[in-house]
Simulated assay, not measured.
Amino acid sequence: MKPIYLTGFMGSGKTTIGSLLGKRLNLPVVDTDHYIEEKYSRKVAEIFSLLGEEVFRSYEASILSELPQQDAVITTGGGMAVSEPNRKYMLENGFVIFLSCPLDTIFERLKEDESRPLFDHEKKREMEKLYDSRLPFYRECHWVLETSGEDPANIVEKIAARLELSDSGQTVEKQ
């Protein structure tokens, strides 16, 4: 099976769903942010503050081809899909699922999280602009799946069922 790429805005559920999906499908889970932190021996926030977002984005692009080419769940950083070459690579080499979630829900989920260098609770309008600017890129995927108000276990079962359909040769339209 091709790798499953989970994309979406920070707080949309990529890490939670990815972990549960990996267990459900008995597949390894690779978090691209953690992969970058290990490879470059720096936390994402440190890379942003010391080297800048442009350097971090170049790290994201450079690791894609190093990630598993099959039988894996890959949770991407919130900005991974913004890059056209990254989107193209993921679409051609895997099954891309956009975990969609309204911004109000994301603000609620991240209210105590201070580890995200681009998320600022005090600048809600800027976060709305960032979110809106990324939506068209996230929508370039194989499947849009709403995560707001859904139990993570139910989301994982929906993904597993969809993957079973595609493995059986049936095609399922993007929702």
Rank of each mutant, 00 (worst) to 15 (best):
I47R: 10
K43A: 10
S115L: 13
Y35P: 11
F98W: 15
E164R: 15
Y35H: 12
D113S: 07
L64A: 09
P136Q: 12
F95S: 04
D132Q: 15
A161L: 03
V30G: 01
G52V: 10
I106D: 08
L118E: 02
D33W: 07
I4Y: 02
K23Y: 00
G8C: 06
P102L: 02
L50Y: 14
G8V: 06
E122V: 00
S62T: 06
G94F: 05
K88F: 01
M80A: 12
V55L: 11
E84N: 09
E38S: 13
R134F: 02
E46A: 14
F98D: 03
E46R: 15
K174W: 08
K2Y: 00
L64I: 07
P117H: 03
L118Y: 05
I36A: 02
R87V: 03
A61H: 13
L67M: 05
I159M: 07
E114S: 15
E84H: 14
V144M: 06
N93E: 10
M90W: 12
V156H: 07
E37A: 08
E46T: 15
T32A: 01
H34P: 11
A45I: 12
A45Y: 11
N26W: 03
L145K: 14
R125S: 10
E157G: 10
Q70M: 13
A45N: 14
S49K: 01
L135P: 10
A153R: 11
L27Q: 04
E140S: 09
G79L: 10
K14W: 04
M90N: 06
R125Y: 14
S12N: 09
G77E: 06
D132A: 14
H142A: 04
L103M: 02
L6K: 03
N26L: 06
K2D: 00
E84A: 09
E122W: 08
K158E: 06
L67V: 05
F119S: 06
A153M: 12
L130Q: 06
Y138C: 08
E157M: 06
T75E: 00
T15F: 05
E173V: 13
K23A: 05
R109G: 03
T171Q: 15
D113K: 09
E84C: 01
G52W: 11
L25C: 02
T105F: 04
E122Q: 12
F9P: 03
D104M: 11
L67R: 06
V172H: 03
D104A: 12
L50C: 13
G11H: 10
R24K: 11
A160W: 00
G94V: 09
V96H: 07
D31G: 04
K88M: 04
A81W: 01
A160P: 04
